[in-house]
Design a protein around this nucleic acid. Structure first.
Length: 269
DNA sequence: AACGTGCCCTGAACGC
DNA sequence: TGCGTTCAGGGCACGT
């Protein structure tokens, strides 16, 4: 499940292979993704690739006339391969380049998406997003204001893309544990001291994951490259019923907003 | 506006 | 062995 670090690592991985290449065409074997580009857009994609950027968990392949927007959903991953590489199961989309290579999107569960935004326009999906977690716009004042007016559980507010982007279920669990905040605690009841702890925890955890992934995954043109996956120390996620690594208390698992939530009732308040 | 729920999808892990 | 059921999750759409 690609979270923001995996998406950023993917961006860094594919970027050198795409930048300054000409995008020749898009081959779609499976259009039944979460969203798909209109046909008339596909016809105009024979353009040079200027750069590959990221906003939240969306990748943007920037062309002179606009941006291809890609989301990896739950199970999507990208590879750069020789153009004649046979497609295997769940290889849905190929972005064919003029250097005999292609960018291939494989997405088992098809929660991923491919969209288009015309140059100078902002796609509605990107228009109302909160700040990037690693940017200065995501600061204590912003976090405090967002939490102050919400009665929902702290974890749900943290995962709200209008508050901050890119904090998925795993990182929300981990960050709240590290900050000592009970996931179910009403956001408005979270103390100033807890928020002051939470902010750097989010930034540090995401930054460390990107750094680690960046060193682990260097060559996205290898067929056995594993973008969207890197080893990390998970303190609570997936460890419900097991002992807390800090105090040895048994970790509690509940569901919040239909998502698995794990915490230590001793360390988190 | 804020909040809760449903939905999309496949494959792994389970129960009978 | 072979079914059927449950679960995983991002994020929008919708109803209240």
């Amino acid at each position: 499940m690609p979270e923001l670090p995996e998406v950023e690592v993917s961006r860094q991985g594919i970027s050198p292979y795409l930048q300054n290449q000409q995008l020749v065409k898009v081959v779609a074997r499976q259009r039944q993704l979460r969203w798909w580009v209109p046909d008339e857009v596909l016809a105009q994609l024979n353009q040079p690739i200027l750069s590959v950027t990221r906003r939240a968990k969306y990748l943007l392949i920037q062309l002179p006339q606009g941006d291809i927007i890609m989301h990896l959903g739950m199970s999507g991953h990208l590879k750069v391969l020789p153009v004649d590489t046979p497609a295997t199961k769940h290889d849905h989309i190929d972005f064919v380049l003029n250097n005999a290579m292609l960018l291939r999107l494989n997405d088992t569960r098809r929660f991923g998406a491919v969209l288009w935004q015309q140059k100078g326009e902002l796609h509605p999906l990107l228009a109302s997003l909160g700040p990037e977690p690693l940017s200065d716009n995501f600061n204590l004042a912003h976090l405090t204001a967002a939490f102050a007016k919400r009665a929902s559980a702290a974890k749900l507010v943290l995962m709200d893309n209008h508050v901050v982007v890119g904090v998925g279920n795993i990182y929300a669990n981990e960050a709240l544990f590290k900050a000592g905040i009970l996931p179910s605690k009403p956001a408005k009841a979270v103390t100033a001291a807890q928020l002051a702890k939470l902010l750097p925890v989010i930034k540090d955890t995401l930054a460390a994951a990107i750094k680690q992934g960046g060193t682990t995954l260097k060559d996205f043109s290898q067929a056995d490259g594993k973008p969207g996956y890197f080893a990390q120390q998970l303190l609570v996620y997936g460890r419900g019923g097991q002992p807390c690594l800090s105090c040895n208390e048994t970790l509690t698992e509940i569901r919040l907003g239909q998502r698995s939530t794990v915490y230590c009732s001793h360390c988190q308040q």
